[in-house]
């Protein structure tokens, strides 16, 4: 069982990150913890592929990773602008 230590470690990481997501205290701590949980979930899916021998899990991990970043940015934009459809504010002197 060469995957056992990695899986145990990843599950412990998930639990600790979940604790940070519950503790907060600010929204950003929770978003950061959610982001870390997403990364660990990707790794767990990648390990699961080799554990079960089903190659679909890496594709799931890729999709999960894309959803993870889009989700993080969406939550941040929602709490910054208050609306997902509105255009983001462009800083002064920032190049587009």
């Amino acid at each position: 069982m060469i995957y056992a230590p990695a899986i145990v470690a990843l599950v412990v990481t998930l639990a600790l990150a979940m604790a940070r997501a519950f503790l907060g205290p600010t929204l950003f701590d929770r978003a950061l913890a959610a982001n870390a949980i997403g990364t660990v979930a990707m790794l767990l899916l990648a390990v699961l592929e080799f554990l079960t021998g089903r190659p679909e899990y890496t594709d799931l991990a890729l999709v999960y990773g894309l959803l993870n970043i889009v989700g993080t940015i969406a939550v941040l934009k929602f709490f910054r602008v208050g609306d997902l459809g509105q255009e983001g504010t462009v800083e002064e002197g920032e190049s587009r």
């Binding site: 470690a9 990481t13 990150a17 790794l43």
Partner: peptide, 12 residues
């Protein structure tokens, strides 16, 4: 794999 797991736990 195990070393990677250790660093994940340290980060958490």
């Amino acid at each position: 794999l195990s070393l990677g797991g250790v660093f994940c736990v340290i980060g958490a």
